[in-house]
Design a protein around this nucleic acid. Sequence first.
DNA 1: ATGCTGGCTGAGAGCGCTCTCACACGGAGG
DNA 2: CCTCCGTGTGAGAGCGCTCTCAGCCAGCAT
Lengths: 327, 327
Amino acid sequence: MSRPTLEKVAARAGVSRATVSRVVNGSTTVAEHIRVAVQRAVEELGYVPNQAARSLVTQRADSIALVFSEPPVRVFSDDPTFAGIIRGVSTEADAADKQVVLMLAGSSRGHERVERYTTSGHVDGVIVASMHGADPLPAALARRGIPVVCSGRPLTGSSLPYVDIDNVGGAESAVRHLLESGRRRIATIAGPPDMVAGIDRLTGYRNALRDSGRRSIIAIGDFTRDSGFEGMTQLLEDDPGLDAVFAASDMMALGALQALRRAGRRVPDDVAVIGYDDVPAAPYADPPLTTIRQPTMRMGRELARLLLSPGESSVILPTELVVRESA
Amino acid sequence: MSRPTLEKVAARAGVSRATVSRVVNGSTTVAEHIRVAVQRAVEELGYVPNQAARSLVTQRADSIALVFSEPPVRVFSDDPTFAGIIRGVSTEADAADKQVVLMLAGSSRGHERVERYTTSGHVDGVIVASMHGADPLPAALARRGIPVVCSGRPLTGSSLPYVDIDNVGGAESAVRHLLESGRRRIATIAGPPDMVAGIDRLTGYRNALRDSGRRSIIAIGDFTRDSGFEGMTQLLEDDPGLDAVFAASDMMALGALQALRRAGRRVPDDVAVIGYDDVPAAPYADPPLTTIRQPTMRMGRELARLLLSPGESSVILPTELVVRESA
DNA sequence: ATGCTGGCTGAGAGCGCTCTCACACGGAGG
DNA sequence: CCTCCGTGTGAGAGCGCTCTCAGCCAGCAT
């Protein structure tokens, strides 16, 4: 029971292969009655074009890869970023009639697999959603001649097109909010210094603080809850008089909340806390977490658009401060 | 700058296409010095086989699809199930040298897309990870002649191979734990009745209760936190004297915790709470949540194994009770 | 010498499709 | 009447690969 071919459909409809191909691909130069006959034959046989054969001649795959250059744990954590990106990319790809292929390239073996897969003609382009700005994958693919766009500004100095979210601006607005509500000793739990988001959010914090002439109090975390807990604990030791903390991720903010509780500080009365990402759990935190929301879905759309219509330039998307009760 | 073909490599190495093909595909019947020469040519030209051409003749794609028949929101929620499945499938597929293609088929349009993609020869088989047991997708694909395995027992009466987790047994052990610790009026917040996990966990609850001769107190939720909150609130009205609740998902348990707190009940002193799934947030709940852990990664591995070596029969995996402080 | 293996290699067909090009056909214009 | 054109349609090449098959050249037995 092999799948029917163009040839079979043509025979059944009493026309040539070329005509069936025209109908299947929606050419207008086919007489109405023939079109109908062919469509019936397609229907009856349950014909589906063989994509391999098609790709072979067209040199297109009509699909794009969305590569997550991270371990799956991270991708499927409660970070809404990835979900939003996927939704956005899917939406846009749908509109352009392209299929989206998700790939995980967590390990170095994964990198190699992705490279082989994408260079072997499976896809027309690749979106690399990597949080590590220094990821070598995008450049490697580009060198192979594959169209690539990155989510997040690449740290490799390559001039690849990218879509990023205004991390600096987001952090600035968070710290400004703290400043405006009268906080005077504002600490931060920064993200890892090898990720753009970590770097840029710290820059934003410093910018806002410098403008107001206050000194910075910094702990370094890695975006996880545990590192937030530890960071907060350390901060409290360093400067027991602090009255606000900006955590570079909600997960770290959640950890900080816990550390604060343990230390007997009330939030927001004694210490105001503000996070980043607006994860699903943020409104359920105790107290509900004030945070920075990112337009993740729009990011996905822009990524796809950038990949599909080359020549357009990189985009930086704005963030939004969501005020709840923690600050 | 088009990609080099077999022909080019052959010319450079001074051999025929066939020989290059043999080397690339690891045939042993090639003289050592020729093999080396060919490999050098491949290296120098950066040759990567054209997968479309290869598939066209071999009728294989060397990749499998992992389809999530759910809206992305659900897939990327803090439910660790999907992440585990993905990891497991990837591991097993890697070992068999197959590529994993993730696809989201949330909408009905998505279903159609997935059907077209998988039937057009892109993949050698499909794993459908769907929580709705009555999903028509698996059967539709099977009808098309594509090898399919399901995660979760299909509710459609089809005899497709599947891998499931022992939901009934898991729920039973949860309720038994409650019973053994002296609880007498044990309620449940059940999952939606159109999902296997919802149905089976309720069955398990009923089984355990029936064995002990106690009556059941039931609220219906949809696995979300909000529905857990509402379910608990309703349960408290229905039977203010209850001293334990088994929530069919951790998210619902988290919602229940919140409702309990609001109602002034102490956990576990007044009411014991036990969840299901062991989400990442479970140990951080207040109090840390006792729950049922599922071997999700193993599930992924079994799914891949089942797809890759047909003839083996469906599998049901055991669960594990994780005792923390809420029960 | 001749015949027979057995190990390597090359020639060539063909996978299912698209797309160019030639061609058939009816109607308008010379 | 023939030419010219526009509109559909079919023939056929070829995309890059795999794989069968034939052929070649040792080396050994006859």
